[in-house]
Structure formats: structure tokens, C-alpha cells
Amino acid sequence: MSGAHHFLTEAQYGDSLVHRLDPRVKIMGLMGLTVVSVSTPADAVWAFASYLGVLLFLLGLSRLPLVLVLRRVALVLPFILMVAVFLPFFGRAGGGGYNVGSVRISGAGLLVLWNVTAKATVGVTAMTLLASTTSFPELVAGLERLRTPRLFTLIVSFMYRYSFLFVEEFRRMRRAMEARNFQGRWLWQAGIVGHMVSSLFLRSYQRGERVYLAMVSRGYDGSMRASAPLALRRADAAFITGLATVLLAVRITA
């Protein structure tokens, strides 16, 4: 199972000041930044610039590749395009406009486009930063300490473990499928995809079941034992107070 588990484990890249922060302050800080950014009125352009500035500063501090963030931002593109397509429809109630060829683009429409693009970018960057500098078990431990319901974190941690099995199994099937020149291009081939999905489920379930029973027989009681208990340090306090101060200042003046 070498390599390529890129979908949840980017946290393992690197070690930095940001990586070493307590997961709780990272969760609170970066989620807080996203919430504040979404609540900011769209016309405060410089406010979004400063949110992005803070994120880029943290990104630089964490020495993560910028490509990582760009790839994630690209995921949001379809949604942004969907809004962009409807640009001319917006802004019946005035608000300036521009003519591009024979299409009249309304100013209000542009504002909506800017609004969603800026906020989605800030949100995606913040969450990528969080997920890429915090290992998954740390993230779960942080969420648990922030009083996330027990059943919830339990399912999340099981899901994390099983998802590797699923992805690995799936990759094998896909390779076999491609080796036989099946590409799954048409709707009526969904049935075959369905067969793949169902054998994926059954295989992985049975394996997961065995693993769980093995865990129970070795004394698993539903709690994951962290190797080092979480403890807030001075850097964590500095991070959260600094971030809160900047956010408050920007948001109030915006």
C-alpha cells in the first residue's frame, strides 16, 4: 500500500510551527476565520485580501506547497462557473453594468460572482491548511476535546481507517476494469459500476468486521488512546489571540 494515499493524509508532509500547534486552536482559529470571512459584506474587498493574506502567511510558515491549495480551489470552480453563467440575469434592480458584445453584464451580478469566489477561496484555503498541517488522529482528538459527540468521532475514526481499504480495493478493481477496456462512459454501464461498488462494499465490510472483532477481543472499548495527551502551550495561545485580534480588527472596520 505504498504511496498515493493522498486523499486524507497530506498532513504527513513536513513539520513546522503550524504543524506543531494544538489541533484545537487550529480547528477553532481556521473555522473562525472562515465564518468571519463569510459574514463580511462583499464590497469590503480589502478585508478579503487581508483574510487571504493571513492564510498565505500561515501557509508560508507551514512550508506547504501552494499547488496543494490551488488544486483544492479548482474543485470549487464548477460552482463558480455556474454563477458566472447566470451573470447577465442578475441585478434587475439597477447597480451599473457593462456591455460585452451584445450581452449586458450587470454590476450586481459581478458583485455576486466576486462574493462567492472570494469567500469560497478563503474557505477552501483555510480548510486545506487545517487538514494539511494536522494528522487525522490529531484532528479527531481535537474535535473530541471540543465536545463533538462520541458516536460521531467514533464513526469518523473508523471511517478513516476503513477508507484506506476501500480506496485500495477500488483502485485494484479500476485497474482490472481498465485492463479490459471498460471505461464506464455511458449511463447504461452504470449497472456494471454498480457491481463494482457492491463487491467493493461486501469485501471491505467483511474485512472491516474481522478487524473490529480482533480489536474487541484485544480489549478495544471505544476509546482511542493518544500517545501524548493534548496540552495547550504558549505558541497555541499566541496563535489564537493573534488571529482573533486580526480578525476582529478587520471585521469591525470592514
Partner: peptide, 24 residues
């Protein structure tokens, strides 16, 4: 006793299956 892993597996399964695009 077995419901927790079933929930976890179902979650992982839905998670993985949502990455599976089928053509329209």
C-alpha cells in the same frame, strides 16, 4: 457490538463511492 463498524464501513463506503463519478 457490530453496529459501530457497520456505521464506520458505511461511512467509508459512501465517502469512497462519492469519488466515483458516473457518466451523464
Amino acid at each position: 457490538e457490530r453496529t459501530v463498524p457497520l456505521l464506520g464501513v458505511t461511512a467509508a463506503f459512501v465517502f469512497a463511492a462519492q469519488m466515483l463519478n458516473f457518466p451523464v
